[in-house]
Amino acid sequence: MPTLILKRLVMTIPSLIGVVIVTFLLTRALPGDPAAYFAGPAASTEAIEQIRKSLGLDQPLPVQFVDYVQALVRGDLGTSLTTGQPVAAEIAARLPASAELTLLGLLVSMAIAVPLGILAATRPGSMIDHACRIVTTAGVSLPVFFTGLILVYVFYYLLGWAPAPLGRLGIFDSPPPTITGFYLIDSLLAGDGTTFMASLKQLALPALTLGIFALAPIARMTRASMLAVLSSDFVRTARACGLASYTVVVTYAFRNAMLPVITTLGMVFSFLLGANVLVEKVFAWPGIGSFAVEALIASDFAPVQGFVLTMAVLYVALNLAIDLLYGLIDPRARMDA
């Protein structure tokens, strides 16, 4: 296992280099004047010149790249024009909100999609199989911001079950002392049940929105791989050995069927991190997605660039985690390392 971790870590290096080069190119090597981008739309010619100097944009491209990488190593992502704050600090402060939302969304969709896919695969042609098929076909067609708005309309406006879609806590609640930055965990650690419930209520709809969004690919993959595994030779062996059907389905079929599902999670995360931006806008969620959207509207480029880079690095890290999880379950992947 340690060699596997090391090998996978090494394998992420080209991806990271690619990500850094692309984010660099997005700002510097494109048509137009990067200094003008960074200075914002209202800047005067002198201000633009000053920005050009201070960012080193008057230097040749390779020198600029070295500067850029050095700044990244220092954790410097530039300064936001609108807030005047360092982008890195803003992103760090807002990241837990996004992470809590995304992870809970993933959890919700796994909790629904995996059992659904398994039941559909073990009972082909049944009602639940048809339900699964409808969910997977309709699910991929749902624009995530549209789902979010419908949920708000039904659960906030019509039924009044959910609080107003305005961020992580109601106006009268105060956030728990920061330990992990996840309100659910922090409020539990502080033993504060009221805040826990309040933040859970706020999280429920956006997390459900993301969950519905990720439902289709996970359910589809679970069903397909479960079907493939159930008709495989070794499940036939397990059944011929008279193992209890629970053992056959869970110990033999399910664990093997999870391998392609785990691989799919990479793609699911790619979609989830993107959808997260839209959901944050719908629910006024104070995460890095809405931070980037606000900056985009204001043509404030440094936060956008920092956001893209952060998301990409997060995504690379998530893929690494997925690889390691795969290795934990599949001994063959461990041996390759």
């Binding site: 070794f234 062996t237 011929a240 050995c241």
Partner: peptide, 18 residues
């Protein structure tokens, strides 16, 4: 498995790989 058992062709795929 208790009274009547079976073995298969292609033993490598007939066993649970993980």
């Amino acid at each position: 498995g208790r009274e009547i058992a079976m073995i298969f062709q292609n033993p490598r795929t007939a066993l649970n790989p993980i």
